[in-house]
């Protein structure tokens, strides 16, 4: 597995609610044409918050094992 996290956004399912933009502690996302896009993957810590909070199953975070730390908000 690669050292860097990667993020898949299913644009067909994304409804543009901006939850991911708001909840990501590292400002990884931005909105473009009402769809979420990854702006800066390098900042991603793999915390999974965006994945857990995307209501539309539109985000999949592939986090390297050691980076994956479970958040408890």
């Amino acid at each position: 597995m690669s050292e860097k996290a990667s993020i898949e956004i299913n644009e067909k399912w994304c409804k543009g609610c901006e939850i991911c933009v708001d909840v990501c502690p590292r400002d990884v996302f931005e909105m473009r044409n009402f769809v979420a896009k990854v702006k800066d993957i390098d900042k991603c810590t793999g915390c999974m918050l965006c994945e857990q909070l995307c209501p539309d199953f539109a985000i999949i975070v592939h986090a390297p094992e050691k980076k994956k730390k479970s958040v408890s908000v």
Partner: peptide, 25 residues
């Protein structure tokens, strides 16, 4: 998550920003 879903039914009917999808996850 996808292994538990009926993928052909997506995207789901809930509005943008509705909490119901988060609960389902």
């Amino acid at each position: 998550y996808l292994q538990y879903l009926r993928l052909d039914k997506f995207p789901h009917i809930w509005c943008a920003g509705c909490g119901d999808g988060i609960a389902l996850k």
